[in-house]
Each structure stands twice: as structure tokens, then as C-alpha cells.
């Protein structure tokens, strides 16, 4: 693009450097023709659904009575944001809790795993391959795996817990109802499944980053008297800062939009205990058939995610500059 920002103007400068530029199909027309299919695909796949969703949020479309659809202005926004019945804020809070907790713990485990895998180990490739296994298993399979493991009647987790016997003391004499009760255990179970599924992503990315940390810097720090913690804190982490920023941003956003694990394990229950925003939107739109309400929630959620991403990246960029 810098070629285009010359005093003579974009295409004129290109013509100077490349005499045949601009002649026939080698000029701007070619650029637009080549871009056209991609732009149209973008229009069809991204912009049209987003615009249609926003338009739907100003209507009252309920699939049980589609003929009664009409424009309602900002009514849906007012209801969703202020009326408890719509369950918007509890879903937002659970989304944040789920995303922050699962990302933070997955990051810590993933980083630790990356540090271990970065050492010279026998069968290094095998260990690295095994460490990635949870990440390559499809989300739905992971969800059903944990659904059965946590099942109160025949799950292996309860078998292990009820089998614990420390000199006659049995901390779990009876099986736990993981997907019942007040929902706290279900929250734990879904976050646990998400962590198991996500930590290899951090391992993979941070392991790649660790291999770019200059050895001479680490050696110099060692000579200067820095210990393991000092080298990690003052050399390894700053070097990986950009990777950490990108991976955590991506994972937070992916986790905020988690669907498969929660839907397959709990349907958002018990009650609304594990109802995150995406499950709530899906349930509202497709189970309850209130499409416009779901579109309103989607639009607000989109804006919230955009705002979060903007500020998060600004904050991380600021730290990076410091």
C-alpha cells in the first residue's frame, strides 16, 4: 500500500515503476475483478447475516406467529436489557465466568505443558503429539465424553470419588448429582471439560513461541545471575507477549461463544445455571422460536464482544510498548 501513497498518486506511481501497469486487464480493473468473488462471498457469508440479524432485532418475528411480525423499533432492546424474564444478564455473567475461568486455567496448564515440552526429552515428538490430543478431538465428542464421565449414575468420576477411602474416612460416600442440584457442580463440570479441550492450543502456540526465545539472551541473563524465575519473568514472558495476547484474545472470544460443550453436556441447565449467551440465544431463537428477541441479544452480544476485543488489544498493546 505504501507504493500507492506517493506524491504522484497511487496508480500513477505504479505506472512509473511498472510501465505496463494499468494497461488492459493488468490495471485496477483486474484488481477489482479478482477481488469481486471474495467480496461477494464476504457479503453473503458475513455482512448479509449480520445486517439481517440487526434488522430482525427491530421487528417482532416469532416463528409461532410469523404473520404477526411488525417493526417495533427499540422495544426489543429495552425489554432484553431491563426485563429479568429475558434472562440476558445472567447469561452474560455466566459467559464471562466460563470464559475467564476456562481460559485462565487452560492458559496456565498450557504454558506449563509448553515449558515441559520445550525441554529435551526422550520421545519428544510422541509427548508433543499426545499433548495435542484433547485439542484435535471435536468439541461435541469432548462434551459427550465428559457428559458420561460426570453422569451421576454410571460415570467414572463418581466411581472414583465414592471409591476414595482414607483410613475409613470416605469424603464422598454417595454419588454426586453433577447435572442437578443448584447448578454449581454443573458449572464446574462444563468448565473442566472446556479446560481439558483448550489447554493444548496454548501449549502448541507457546511451544512455538518458546523456540524463538534467543538462547544468547537467556545465557547472558544466567551469567548476570538471573535464576530460573528471573529468566522466565524478564526474558521468556516478554518475548512471548504478542503470542500470549493473540492466543488469549482468541480463546476468550471462542470461549465466550462456546456452544457445543455446554449444549451437549447440560442444555444450559440445571435451570439456567450453565446458560451462556450463545446457548441462551440458540434456545430463544430456535427452541422458543422468538427470532427477533434472539436477534436482539445477538446484536448486543456482538457489540459487547467488539468493545471487549478493542479494549483488550489496546491494553495489551499499551503494555507491549511499555
Amino acid at each position: 500500500m505504501s507504493e500507492l501513497n506517493t506524491q504522484r498518486g497511487g496508480f500513477a506511481s505504479l505506472r512509473t515503476r511498472f510501465p505496463k501497469y494499468g494497461q488492459g486487464l493488468d490495471g485496477p480493473l483486474l484488481i477489482w475483478i479478482l477481488l469481486f468473488p471474495s467480496l461477494l462471498l464476504l457479503c453473503g457469508i458475513i455482512f448479509y447475516p449480520v445486517i439481517n440479524t440487526v434488522l430482525l432485532s427491530f421487528q417482532s418475528l416469532n416463528l409461532s406467529e410469523p404473520s404477526a411480525n411488525k417493526w417495533v423499533g427499540l422495544d426489543n432492546y429495552g425489554r432484553v436489557l431491563t426485563n429479568e424474564v429475558y434472562g440476558f444478564w445472567p447469561a452474560v455473567w455466566f459467559s464471562i465466568l466460563f470464559s475467564a475461568t476456562s481460559t485462565l486455567i487452560a492458559f496456565v496448564i498450557g504454558f506449563a505443558m509448553a515449558l515441559v515440552l520445550n525441554q529435551k526429552l526422550r520421545f519428544q515428538l510422541v509427548w508433543r503429539g499426545l499433548a495435542l490430543t484433547p485439542w484435535v478431538i471435536p468439541y461435541v465428542v469432548v462434551a459427550y465424553l465428559f457428559f458420561y464421565m460426570f453422569n451421576s449414575q454410571y460415570g467414572i468420576i463418581n466411581s472414583i470419588l465414592t471409591g476414595i477411602n482414607i483410613f475409613g474416612w470416605r469424603p464422598f460416600p454417595e454419588p454426586l448429582g453433577w447435572f442437578g442440584g443448584n447448578g454449581n457442580l454443573a458449572v464446574f463440570a462444563t468448565i473442566f471439560a472446556a479446560i481439558w479441550n483448550k489447554f493444548p492450543f496454548f501449549s502448541l502456540m507457546l511451544l512455538a513461541g518458546l523456540q524463538t526465545v534467543p538462547q544468547e539472551l537467556l545465557d547472558a541473563a544466567t551469567v548476570d545471575g538471573a535464576g530460573v524465575w528471573g529468566r522466565f519473568r524478564h526474558i521468556t514472558v516478554p518475548t512471548l507477549r504478542n503470542i500470549i495476547m493473540i492466543t488469549t484474545t482468541l480463546q476468550i472470544i471462542w470461549s465466550l461463544n462456546e456452544f457445543a460443550i455446554i449444549w451437549a453436556m447440560t442444555n444450559g441447565g440445571p435451570g439456567t445455571a450453565t446458560n451462556n449467551m450463545v446457548v441462551h440465544i440458540y434456545r430463544t431463537g430456535f427452541i422458543e422460536q422468538r427470532l427477533s428477541t434472539a436477534a436482539t441479544m445477538s446484536t448486543i452480544w456482538l457489540l459487547m464482544l467488539l468493545a471487549f476485543t478493542y479494549f483488550y488489544i489496546r491494553i495489551m498493546e499499551g503494555k507491549s510498548e511499555v
Partner: peptide, 14 residues
């Protein structure tokens, strides 16, 4: 959809 949510919460002790 609302009724089964309430059913679960009451079964869980609400």
C-alpha cells in the same frame, strides 16, 4: 422452555 427450567431449579432445591 421456562417451565422445565423451573422444574430443574425446584428439583435442585429452589
Amino acid at each position: 422452555s421456562f417451565i422445565v427450567s423451573a422444574l430443574q431449579e425446584i428439583a435442585g432445591g429452589a
